[in-house]
Simulated scan of single mutants.
Amino acid sequence: MNDVVMRPLRFTADVDAMRAFLETLGLRSRIESERGGWVDMLTGRGMVALHDAASSSTGGQPGQTRLSFEAEKIDELRDRLEQVGFVDATVFDEAYGRVLSVTAPDSVVIWVDERAEDMYGYKVHDVRPDDRWSVTPYLTGAEEPAWRRFLEGVGATVRFGPDDGEFAVRLDLSTTEDLDDVQARLDNYQVTRTAAGLEIVDPDGQLVVVHG
């Protein structure tokens, strides 16, 4: 994996249903909590984390997606962010490991988990990601120039939509797999084919776009 990995965090009312949906698309489950309520899933580039909204300590609502990351060395990432002007980047310890917190543009607080070695309380699956798939979050209500500066410091890229309204993150994915093959797997979901790709209503009732 790269030093810093894009890992959008989806708060969901049904972790199992969202996990099944993402696995149908082509993602692979990597780590899950033995108590349930958390799973992170791999693509060839980037990850998606699922968190039970009912047990969220930060007010995450069902269907809400937040931008987050996982990094190998968060102290080095903190230094990089400080160099590009994000001087409140702070590293601290949580019960599950070390975390970096930083205020990104539009006053959005971003969390970066340090890649953990102690997997006590978690199940680890030995899986290979499908290299045809990548995570490409779609930001709306974002001040694009400022976000590009932030993302350059992190070493990540996203898609940008309209900059009006409140800041929001949509869980978009990109693939080199034939979209006809992808759509054929999605009989149990509402799917619309558009010029952008496949527009799918996920189990949380949210739109996910798969770009070809």
Rank of each mutant, 00 (worst) to 15 (best):
D126P: 09
P137Q: 05
R7M: 14
R10T: 11
P129Q: 03
W133F: 09
Y120M: 11
L77M: 02
R185E: 00
A116N: 07
F92R: 12
G141N: 02
L77W: 05
E177L: 08
I31N: 03
A142L: 13
D204Q: 00
A116L: 07
D88Q: 07
L50Q: 01
G97K: 01
R78K: 14
V158L: 11
H51Y: 15
G197D: 08
L67F: 08
S174H: 05
R45F: 11
R7G: 04
G97C: 04
V169F: 02
T192P: 02
A71H: 03
V127L: 01
S56C: 06
V91G: 10
D180H: 10
L81P: 03
T157S: 15
R45Y: 11
E34P: 07
G153V: 07
T192A: 09
S56M: 02
D202L: 04
D204N: 01
L139K: 06
A89E: 06
L100C: 06
A168M: 08
V201Y: 07
S101Y: 08
V109F: 05
L25W: 01
R35W: 12
G165E: 08
G212A: 08
R45T: 12
W147E: 10
Q64F: 06
Y189Q: 03
D113T: 13
V91R: 14
P129L: 01
G205S: 00
H125D: 07
R132S: 13
R66L: 15
A49K: 04
S107W: 13
W111F: 15
T24H: 02
A95W: 08
S29C: 13
P145Y: 05
R193Y: 03
F11T: 07
E76H: 11
G161L: 06
V109I: 13
D16C: 10
G212S: 08
D75E: 14
A142I: 13
V154I: 12
E177T: 04
D79A: 15
V84N: 01
D16V: 09
E114S: 01
R10D: 05
R66Q: 15
P105H: 09
A104Q: 10
N2G: 07
L81E: 01
A17Y: 06
F167T: 02
Q83G: 09
H125E: 11
T140L: 05
M119F: 15
T175C: 03
T136R: 14
Y189N: 03
D172S: 05
I200C: 00
V84D: 00
V87I: 13
G165D: 11
L42M: 10
R115S: 08
T192Q: 12
H211S: 08
Q206L: 02
L100F: 09
